[in-house]
Each structure stands twice: as C-alpha cells, then as structure tokens.
Design a protein around this nucleic acid. Structure first.
Length: 306
DNA sequence: GTGTTTGTTATCAA
DNA sequence: CTTGATAACAAACA
C-alpha cells in the first residue's frame, strides 16, 4: 500500500530518470482506469515532454510542456496495489507481438501463483498502461486490483482538487504543534480515523498511522479531542520522525509495494505493530492486539499505548 | 463460498 | 455547509 513515503520514493526516482523525456506512444490495456476517454487521453499526452513530477499526499502530479496550448496535468493515484516501473532499455518483443499478447502467453505458460505476489518482470498480467518514451525508456503502470487511476486535468481542476482534498504535508512547517492541537480539539472521532483522513493530514495510511500511534504511546481508539497537549506533541513528533525515516529507507513493502526500479522498501524491518498481531511487543513483551477500527485492520500494544 | 486486505468515495444521518 | 459513520469498490488469496 503506497503511502506518502512510498509515493515519494517513486517520485524521486522517476524525477531523476524521466524528466525531459517525450512520450512516443501509449498502450492502454485497461481503459476504465483512465480519464478522459482513450482518444482524448492519447491526444493530450502524445508527443509531450515531461517537465515536472510533484506529489501531494499520495497523489502524483506529472507536468508536461505545452508551449502553444493550454496546460494539462496527469494525476496518478496508486491506491492499494498500483506500481510504476521504469525500464531504461526497450523491451524486445519477439515477432512483433503486442505486449498484451506477451502477457497472455506468459499466463498460459506459467502457473497462476508465480505471478500472484510481487513481480519483478514487466510487462506482466497486472500491467495496465505502458508509456514508451523517445529514446527507448518504458514506464509500466501495473495494478493488481484496478483501484488506481490516471486522470488528466487542467490547472483549474488541479487546483480545486488539491485545495479541497488535502490537509498539510506531515513534513511541512504547516504541520505544527499549533495546527495539530487545534485539529484534534475540534474532532469527535477516533484519533486513528482522523489521522487516516487526507483532508485533515495528507499522506498517512494504515501502516504509518498504526506505527505513529505506537511510537506516541496512544491507543488508536482514543477520541481525538481527549488527547492532552503532551500526547499531541508526542504524536506530531512520531509522525514526523517515522515519515522521514521511512522515506530514507525507501518505504515499506508489506505485500505488493515495489519502487520504480522494482525494489522493495526497507522500512518493513522497522515496523513495530503493523502486521504483528498476536506477536510480542518489541518494547514490553505483551501481545500486540489486532482489531478493527475505522473499517481498517488496527494493531496496537495495550501495555505501551494508553 | 467466506473473510480479509486498504485508499478513497458515495451515501446517509445529524 | 460540515462532520462522522459505514458500505462499496476491485481482485486475489487462505
């Protein structure tokens, strides 16, 4: 599940490798995942040079050069299982078969299970869109569950999306103690639900929320407005620290996340509660509880968190 | 067939 | 209008 650190890792890698490249062709294998419709989508992107890659929360924003016409932006949201894999060299496809044919032949030739987990070769059966760049680079957009999307918007639409859907970035000065205190004070929901809300704070997902609450010693069920100043302060520091550290470690791979080079994230080694239900707390030895909260799997230590 | 996985949105209620 | 709770979506696996 790509959250802020995973999306940021992808953003940085792609920024390094594909800025300035021009789109030569597009292969859309899952038309439902894009908007506007295929014809318009292709028309806008064809021949465009990529000029910038930004991120807001978990959303990637690709900018292209539009010297003569009105500018458009490509938004990519990976949701749960989306991947962006960039391969520098052109993939050889024998006998002029399309990539779709290649995927089908692989599917026939190999057992289903071999392709069910993280896959390190592309294209594969979860490849939904292929961007080919002039000079040979290829960007593969994969998604096992087809939750992810690619959306082209103009600047007006972009601004309204960014303005209305996202709270402060956890690593920006806006994410201050004052901000978090006033946010928490006026909310009557669980602290976990609040942290998952992108309109409150941008970029946190289930993994980093559980980890942050553990580090801050706060139970996920606690009502946001019940936190005392010291707890809010601990929580802010925990979030800030974990997000920074996770970016440094190139994100967390729990099930399907891989970066744009096909590599797994190292932060998985530092997880203290997420995915550790029923195991001993690394701090105190009590058993980690796994329950359901805000519709999500929720992990915490009943002894360390109060 | 059932339950589980999660980021986001739709929907409904207050 | 806002907030909050919950279901729904999609696909695969145990």
């Amino acid at each position: 599940m790509p959250e802020l650190p995973e999306v940021e890792t992808i953003r940085r890698d792609l920024e390094e490798r594909i800025i300035g490249k021009k789109i030569e062709s597009l292969e859309v294998l899952a038309p439902k995942m894009i908007s506007p419709k295929l014809k318009t989508f292709k028309k806008i992107l064809f021949g465009r040079s990529l000029s910038k890659i930004e991120r807001r929360g978990k959303l990637l924003i690709f900018s292209f050069l539009f010297p003569q016409t009105k500018a458009y932006y490509l938004l990519i949201h990976l949701k749960m299982t989306g991947q962006l894999i960039y391969i520098d060299k052109r993939i050889k496809i024998a006998g002029g078969h399309s990539s779709a044919d290649l995927i089908k032949s692989k599917k026939r030739g190999k057992k289903e299970s071999e392709y069910s987990k993280v896959v390190d070769e592309v294209p594969n059966k979860h490849t939904r869109i292929i961007f080919r760049f002039m000079g040979g680079g290829v960007l593969y957009f994969n998604d096992l569950r087809k939750f992810a999307y690619l959306k082209i918007v103009d600047s007006k639409e972009l601004n309204s999306i960014l303005l209305s859907n996202y709270g402060p970035e956890p690593l920006s000065p806006d994410f201050s103690l004052t901000f978090l205190e006033s946010l928490v004070k006026k909310r009557r929901t669980s602290i976990k639900a609040l942290l998952l809300n992108q309109r409150a704070i941008a970029g946190l997902g289930n993994i980093y929320v559980d980890e942050s609450l553990f580090l801050a010693g706060i139970r996920p069920q606690r009502l946001a407005n019940s936190l005392i100043k010291m707890e809010v302060s601990k929580l802010r520091r925990a979030i800030n620290h974990l997000i920074k550290k996770a970016i440094k470690e190139r994100g967390t791979t729990f099930s399907t996340y891989i970066d744009s080079r096909g590599k797994q994230g190292n932060f998985s080694r530092f997880l203290k509660v997420y995915g550790r239900g029923g195991k001993k707390c690394l701090n105190c030895g009590h058993l980690i509880v796994k329950t359901k909260l805000a519709g999500r799997g929720t992990h915490y230590c009943p002894h360390c968190q109060r």
